[in-house]
Structures are given as structure tokens and as C-alpha cells.
């Protein structure tokens, strides 16, 4: 990849051009022409992009993470667009002005001056380094101050949201579906992701078999689901609406069909739904292993079930899904 900067190039090669041109006086000032074209195009296209396209860029603004990531994407694109334009303008200009078939094209001049130019080289290196370090600083500030930007932060996140109340939602991935557990509502399990609006949510993502990827597209949450690993990602909801969840790490045969849908609903609606589901699912919840951040697969591989991680995997009494209802 490159980071080009026509301006630094303009100063450097421009000086060289002037030195070469000094005697004949006929040669047009190529670099200044290119800089002019580049400046006009950048000045027009950058604001156009930011104003017209920017607000519609995925993943939208449904959560704080989505809004921040949309902003980051737009900033990167606004920074990248002039670089694209600089190289494209240069390539197009060269192809037109310096093609061998053009009438009156001057003969190229070799020699030391065409082989190296300290000003251009130093200018280029300094410019690209400044841009790169700037992007690094921007990205680091964004990921740290925005609580991980919705990405998976492992079991012990160090960049956490500031809000006092955080709703934990566990995402359990397995071949080939997602299920969700709500530990603050008795640990019931559903197949549909329902979260309240205007709330900070901590997604605890784990897997029962292979590596999956939890991608709640509109929420801008993306975290790998690893077996026996708790991967936490944060987002604060801002709007109600529907959410698409897809698996984004290849997990086998039906990876392409591993998706489901969710909703961001109002706080009141969420509490009503959660309470009623907790009650109606109580019988099922009893059959589940107690809530834990990770679950260990059945070590024998024969029962097809899963143990919670605080239970001896070799005892026969705690098989996930086979626990007697009376206990």
C-alpha cells in the first residue's frame, strides 16, 4: 500500500523540473498542473463524500459502536481519497503527456538527476511517516476511548464503557446456530436476540465447538466465539430496530446458513419481554447447566452434550441437557 502526497512531491520534483526547464523555457510546469488538478478534485470530492455518502455508510448509527465505527471509516476514506486521486492523476497525466506516440514529446533525460533526488525522497518518506503515525494515533484513541469499538476484547476487557449499568448478554455459538442467555434474568436461553434501547450491553461470546464469529451487523459488534473462551464486546444502543446476526468465521458445512435476527426494543418492552420469558422458560432453564462464562464440551464425546466449566467433566450426573429435572 502506499501513502502518496502530491504536495510534497510537488515541491520536490517541481524544483527539479524548474532546474531542467531553466534553459529551454518551453516545457510546461507538469507538477504544478498535476497539483492543481489534484487540489480541485480533492476539494470537490472529499466534502461531497463526507456530506452525501458518509451518513449512509454501514453499519449505520443504531449503537454507539456503530456510530463511532462509521465515523472512523469516513475519516479514513476522507484521508485516503486524496491519496487515491494523487496517484491516479499522476498516472493519467503521465499516460497522456509522456506517451511515446505524442507529437513533440521531448526525449527523456537520463543521468544522475533522473536516478535520484534527495528532496523528493526525503519529502516522500517524511510525509508517509507522518500520515501513518497520525492514523495510528487516531485509531488508538478511538479504540481506547470507545470501549473497544464493539470488537471482541477477550475475557478481561481493559477498555470498558463508563456507564454504571451494563446488561450482560451471553452469546453461545455452536454448529450452526446462535443462542442467547440473559444471566440477570435467571439465565434463561432464547434463540432471538432482544436488547433494550439506550442501554450499554456487554456481549459475552463463547462457543461450544469450533471457532465461530458473532457479527451483529447493525450493532457493529464483532467477536470471535472460541471454545472455552469468554470474549467480551460492548455497545450502547441508541435506536430501536431490527438486527441481523451472522457468523463470520468459517465454521463448517452450514456456515452460510448460520444467521438469525434480533431486535432493539424500548427499555419497558425489553423488561416486560424478559420477565415473561423468564417465567415461561423456567422449566427449560432448570434443565440447562448453571450459567457460566464458558462451557466445556463432553470429554467422552459420546453423549453429545456439554458440561459447565465448574463441573468435573468425568462425572456422569451433569451432562448438559440430560440433567434430571428434579435436581
Amino acid at each position: 500500500m502506499t501513502i502518496d502526497n502530491a504536495e510534497s512531491e510537488g515541491q520536490g520534483v517541481g524544483a527539479e523540473a524548474e532546474a531542467v526547464i531553466a534553459q529551454p523555457g518551453k516545457e510546461p510546469r507538469h507538477i504544478w498542473r498535476m497539483v492543481a488538478i489534484w487540489l480541485v478534485l480533492s476539494a470537490v470530492l472529499d466534502p461531497l463524500y463526507y456530506i452525501l455518502v458518509g451518513p449512509h455508510v454501514p453499519p449505520g448509527t443504531m449503537t454507539s459502536a456503530a456510530k463511532d465505527n462509521q465515523f472512523d471509516f469516513n475519516i479514513l476514506l476522507v484521508a485516503a481519497l486524496p491519496v487515491f486521486l494523487a496517484v491516479w492523476v499522476y498516472l493519467a497525466y503521465s499516460a497522456v503527456m509522456w506517451r511515446a506516440s505524442r507529437k513533440g514529446a521531448p526525449e527523456p533525460v537520463g543521468g544522475a538527476q533522473a536516478r535520484t533526488h534527495l528532496g523528493v525522497q526525503v519529502g516522500w518518506i517524511v510525509t508517509t511517516t507522518v500520515i501513518v503515525l497520525g492514523l495510528f494515533a487516531f485509531g488508538t484513541v478511538e479504540v481506547i476511548t470507545k470501549a473497544g469499538s464493539g470488537g471482541g476484547e477477550g475475557p478481561n476487557p481493559i477498555w470498558t464503557p463508563t456507564s454504571a449499568t451494563v446488561l450482560p448478554v451471553q452469546v453461545i455459538a455452536q454448529q450452526w446456530k446462535f443462542t442467547y442467555r440473559y444471566p440477570t434474568f435467571g439465565g434463561f436461553e432464547t434463540q432471538q436476540l432482544i436488547v433494550p434501547n439506550n442501554t450499554t450491553i456487554a456481549f459475552h461470546v463463547t462457543s461450544l465447538d469450533v471457532i465461530h464469529g458473532f457479527w451483529a451487523y447493525q450493532l457493529s459488534i464483532k467477536a470471535d466465539a472460541n471454545p472455552q473462551q469468554d470474549n467480551v464486546a460492548y455497545a450502547t444502543t441508541r435506536q430501536t430496530g431490527s438486527v441481523t446476526v451472522r457468523c463470520e468465521e468459517l465454521c463448517g458445512l452450514w456456515h452460510g446458513a448460520m444467521f438469525n435476527y434480533g431486535q432493539v426494543v424500548s427499555k419497558a418492552a425489553f423488561v416486560a419481554w424478559a420477565k415473561s420469558t423468564e417465567a415461561s422458560a423456567a422449566a427449560n432453564t432448570k434443565l440447562l447447566p448453571p450459567f457460566a462464562y464458558t462451557y466445556v464440551p463432553d470429554a467422552n464425546g459420546s453423549a453429545g452434550g456439554y458440561y459447565p466449566d465448574n463441573v468435573d467433566p468425568y462425572s456422569n450426573s451433569e451432562v448438559y441437557g440430560a440433567k434430571p429435572a428434579s435436581s
Partner: peptide
């Protein structure tokens, strides 16, 4: 990762610099 774009950028410096006032045969 972003630092790699500096040496990769050299590739463009060299390529574009070679095209400067050249006689390009397509």
C-alpha cells in the same frame, strides 16, 4: 501493520518517479 505502508509506499515513489518525463511505450 500501518508502518509497513511506509516501505510499501517506496514502491510508488520509485514507480511514479520513473514515469516522470518519460517516453512511455505502451
Amino acid at each position: 501493520t500501518e508502518l509497513i505502508s511506509i516501505p510499501t509506499g517506496f514502491i510508488y515513489l520509485v514507480g511514479l518517479g520513473t514515469l516522470y518525463k518519460a517516453k512511455i511505450k505502451f
